[in-house]
Computed example of a mutant assay.
Amino acid sequence: MKTITILVVIASYISAGPTNPSGRISYGEVAERGQFPYQVSVQLSLGFTFYPSCGGSILSPEYILTAAHCFPIPGAASYQVLAGITNVYDVNVGEQRRNVLNYVIHELYQSGFVLASPHDIAVVQLTDPLIYTDTIKPIALPPVNAEFTGIATLSGWGETETGRESSILLYAEIPLIDVTECNNALVKLMDPRANNPFDSQTNICTFSTTYQSSCTGDSGGPLALNGTLIGIVSWGMGNCGDKIYSPSVYVKVSKYIDWIQQHSDL
């Protein structure tokens, strides 16, 4: 049976239970500069250097939305946010780096690396506001409890097929699938003794017949539809881009609008 992959990376270490190695946004395209101005890199301090660990989305100059499991080490000082970039390692003209003042993890999220959990959502407050430019802009939130169908856009810096991080921002256009169909596919892949962390009320899913999927390092990043943030990368099963029916799972943002507003300046 496949095992659950929590899609966050700490340097070259995959933060999850026993899993198979994962790839990048499988078969993704290279993003143009400014194509996804709402996308940020959430970075974790290991020693004296910050490393890319997750993605995130700009809500306002001072607030970022990401996944709860992107905070394996307690303390805001362990994290920074980098905006206005396509390459996470090169110096980019117009990039803005901000320290994290505070972050709030959803109170119902169950922390830990062995299994995924519903309510995998966090709001991040920056020490200093971002300055909006052509490459740094917020993304719109959906109406409360809104439902979506169609082809959504995923973006992130997840690992490549070689097991190395992608330094360049990648994206893919991926179909949304029905939650019942998604749950049935995931159950078939899980160990029957394991608890199923999928929640049909607060999760949404994608699956592509061309094997595009979210992968390790894409955690917390945006799934967008028509310029609206509809999902947050949360978890998946086994290898990214498997040629089996293995959906990617996201937090359903429309179910958390009140919570997001409560913990931000929106």
Rank of each mutant, 00 (worst) to 15 (best):
G150M: 09
I10Y: 10
Y38D: 13
Y132F: 15
H106W: 04
V249T: 07
P118D: 05
I121A: 05
T216M: 11
D134K: 09
T153K: 12
P61Q: 02
L44D: 03
G220A: 10
G236L: 04
L65E: 00
W259E: 03
A116H: 05
A83D: 02
I177E: 07
L141S: 01
D265C: 06
Q110D: 12
D199C: 10
V42P: 05
S166T: 03
K2W: 06
P138V: 01
G17A: 13
Q80A: 09
T202R: 06
L59P: 05
A152K: 10
I244Q: 08
C70Y: 02
V100C: 09
V100A: 06
V253E: 00
C205D: 03
F50K: 07
G158Y: 00
G56P: 05
S60W: 06
L266D: 02
H69W: 03
Y256C: 04
L266Q: 04
P18G: 06
M1N: 10
S45N: 14
Y51A: 00
S167V: 08
T162W: 08
A16C: 13
D258I: 15
S166N: 12
D90H: 13
I131E: 14
Y171N: 09
G17D: 08
V100G: 08
G231A: 04
I6Q: 05
G150Y: 15
I174C: 02
E62Q: 11
S208Y: 06
C215R: 02
V187Y: 03
H69T: 14
Q261Y: 03
S26M: 13
L7A: 11
G23Q: 13
I260Q: 03
L223T: 11
F207S: 10
Y245W: 07
P52W: 00
L225W: 11
N195Q: 14
L65V: 13
L130A: 08
A185E: 06
S111T: 13
G75T: 06
P52G: 00
T210Y: 06
S26Q: 14
V30N: 15
Y171A: 03
A122I: 12
K2N: 09
V123T: 13
L266Y: 01
I25G: 01
N195P: 09
A122D: 05
H106Q: 12
P197Y: 07
A185T: 02
A16H: 01
I151F: 12
F207Q: 11
A122E: 01
I257Q: 00
A146I: 15
I14M: 05
G236E: 04
F48T: 15
L101V: 00
